[in-house]
Each structure stands twice: as structure tokens, then as C-alpha cells.
């Protein structure tokens, strides 16, 4: 816990003194829950005589997903979003010198808010926030989808000659092949998605993991969009289907959009904010694909344990959680027609 505090606190304050050009003192640094693939610290510092709360994100040595952005890329992505007026935390410092904290890291302004989905759905004091969120989230998503891809060349994109749907199908097929998983439900889900594949007319920048767990929520609603590591170029319907997935409803299963509202409320707010018509059938397809991909990803997570690469009872248990996404995928296919 204190590995950053003791030997490295001095180095960090020295670094911040250098890059900010003013004397910096670190009063306190404590780990906060972050994504599973990096560690995140809350820093209390005085920079140039001003007391500031900052958040430091550092790579971990094990990488969770190959497609995830590096800290340097994530920082640039946050910066682009911030410039565009998206509610992203203000980017402050990026350090790619591994000698400093043994990994690359970046620092952004601290933003108040809750990112625990279940709390956001249940807390009585967040009732106003819940009422405002479908609109606010739709507006933020519309803004994110309007970020220019130029200058963000590092974002994973769709291979030449492929559609966004074909790329997603290939990814799932490759994951299943790599795992040698013989799961007839996922084989069927993949087949169904192939047979009903959507063409995409609009290709944009996507946040890539847009759900309550990656938003900071205060009593008035959305304070900031965080965790930009899965940014990529794709079909915006993917992102709309993704945040409708049952697993991100946190117990409020009957409210299709993020456990907050019906789906139409959200989609109409998105259409209003973006000026673009949403293809409902495409959102359906991407929600089915989202469940298929998340279910197969759970199997892949279990395989991290089984292969001995990252031995963990938590990863092992995910192998059985995949059945939840499997059932949801089948139910959605049934609603759309086999």
C-alpha cells in the first residue's frame, strides 16, 4: 500500500515541481478502486501554493485486455474529449518515463462522485441524479461521438474492407477458437449475429466502456466520464447497445437503459443531442453482440486462471458467470426472432 507513499512520494513531488515549474508538496497519497488493469491513487498536493486533489493512474505490469490503450494514449484521448467539452476530468500531467514510478502514469483533476453502479441505482439521495442521467448520459455520448478521429490515430479502428459488425464477429470467433470453447449457445449466438449482421453508415470515436461504473455521479447527476482505456473507432450503435446490457442495470433489470429508464427515453435524448437518427434494430443487434462478447470474455477471464497466467479464484468464478450473459443473449434473440 505504501509503495507509492514512501520511496516514490519524493520522486513524484520532484517531478511535479519540475513540470509545473513551482514548488510542489505531496501531503497524502492513497489507493482508490480503479479498473482491474491499473492502479489509481488519490493525491493530495500543494502545487504553486495551491492545495489540489488529483488522481494518478498508473499501468500495472499485467495487462487485462490487449486492446486497451496505454496510459499515454488514454491521456491524449481524455485531453481530446476535454477539449471537445465532454465532462472528462481535466488532464494535468503525463509521464512516460518508466524510471519515475516504474510505469507510465498520468494525473488528472480529482472529480467528486460515485462510480459504484449499485449505489447509484439504490441511494435515496441520488433520486434526482437518476432522473437526470438518461438525458445527461445521452448528451455526453453524443459529444463523445462527435470527437474528431484525426489526431487520435492510436485508437483501434476497423480493418480496411470490413464492417464494424464483421470486426466484432471476428473478435468473438477468435476468442472462442483460442479457448477451444465448445459452447453451443455461444456458437448459435455467433451464427445468429452473422446472419443478421448490420451495416454501419456512421463510424465515430467511441468511449468503449460507457456505463454507470465508469461515470462519477453526484446528487445532480453526471459529474464526469472516466476510464477511457477502451476507446476505439466504431459504430455508435455499439455504444448504445452496450450501455443497455442487463449486466449494467445493477439489479434494476426492468429498466432497459442502464437500470435508469426505458430505452426510448435515452435514444430520443441521444437523437436530440446528436441530430442523428438512431437505428433501433442496430442497437438491438449490438446489445445481443455485447452480451455474446461479454459472455465469451468471461470464459477468457477464467482461462487466465486455468492457464496459470493469473491464478485467482475471482477469474475462475467468471467462467460460470458467463451463463448469465448467455441467457440474456438467448432471450434477446428470441425477442428479435430466431
Amino acid at each position: 500500500m505504501d509503495d507509492l507513499l514512501n520511496p516514490l512520494k519524493d520522486r513524484l513531488s520532484q517531478y511535479l515541481t519540475e513540470v509545473s515549474g513551482t514548488p510542489t508538496e505531496i501531503h497524502h497519497a492513497q489507493p482508490i478502486a480503479g479498473g482491474a488493469s491499473r492502479d489509481t491513487w488519490l493525491i493530495d498536493a500543494t502545487i504553486g501554493g495551491e492545495r489540489q486533489k488529483l488522481v494518478l493512474r498508473r499501468d500495472l505490469s499485467t495487462v487485462m485486455y490487449e486492446q486497451a490503450l496505454t496510459r499515454e494514449q488514454e491521456y491524449q484521448f481524455i485531453d481530446a474529449a476535454y477539449q471537445k467539452g465532454v465532462l472528462a476530468p481535466r488532464p494535468r500531467f503525463l509521464c512516460t518515463d518508466p524510471n519515475l514510478l516504474s510505469q507510465s502514469f498520468f494525473i488528472v483533476d480529482y472529480v467528486e462522485g460515485i462510480s459504484i453502479g449499485r449505489k447509484v441505482i439504490q441511494a435515496p439521495e441520488l433520486a434526482d441524479a437518476r432522473a437526470a442521467l438518461p438525458q445527461q448520459m445521452a448528451q455526453q455520448l453524443a459529444k463523445i461521438h462527435a470527437i474528431a478521429a484525426e489526431g487520435l490515430e492510436f485508437l483501434p479502428r476497423i480493418p480496411e474492407g470490413q464492417s464494424a459488425a464483421q470486426q466484432a464477429l471476428d473478435q468473438v470467433r477468435n476468442m472462442l477458437d483460442k479457448l477451444s470453447a465448445q459452447n453451443p449457445a455461444f456458437a448459435y449466438g455467433l451464427r445468429w449475429c452473422e446472419r443478421h449482421a448490420q451495416t454501419s453508415e456512421r463510424i465515430t470515436v467511441l468511449h468503449g466502456d460507457f456505463r454507470l461504473g465508469n461515470l462519477l455521479i453526484g446528487t445532480q447527476g453526471l459529474n464526469a466520464v472516466i476510464d477511457w482505456e477502451f476507446g476505439h473507432i466504431g459504430d455508435p450503435h455499439e455504444e448504445m447497445g452496450y450501455c443497455c446490457m442487463r449486466d449494467w442495470r445493477f439489479g434494476n433489470g426492468h429498466l432497459h437503459f442502464a437500470g435508469l429508464s426505458d430505452r426510448e427515453t435515452f435514444l430520443r435524448a441521444y437523437e436530440q443531442a446528436s441530430g442523428v437518427t438512431v437505428d433501433r434494430a442496430a442497437v438491438d443487434w449490438w446489445e445481443i453482440m455485447g452480451n455474446l462478447r461479454w459472455g465469451v470474455t468471461c470464459l477468457a477471464q477464467a482461462n487466465r486462471h486455468l492457464s496459470g497466467r493469473d491464478v485467482s479464484v475471482e477469474y475462475a468464478s467468471l467462467g460460470r458467470r458467463s451463463a448469465e450473459m448467455q441467457l440474456e443473449m438467448l432471450r434477446l434473440i428470441q425477442q428479435r426472432g430466431l
Partner: peptide, 25 residues
């Protein structure tokens, strides 16, 4: 299973998935 057999297949997959969840959750 793309043709009419898909209905029988789907029923099987649904039943198997429910059995999996009776164990898993």
C-alpha cells in the same frame, strides 16, 4: 441449424442455459 431446425435447437440451448444457471446462479 439455419432452417426450421433452429426452433428445436433454440429450445435445447435455452434448457441447457437454465440448467447452467441453476448451478451457477
Amino acid at each position: 441449424y439455419d432452417g426450421e431446425r433452429k426452433i428445436a435447437l433454440f429450445e435445447h440451448l435455452m434448457a441447457t442455459t437454465i440448467e447452467q444457471l441453476q448451478v451457477a446462479n
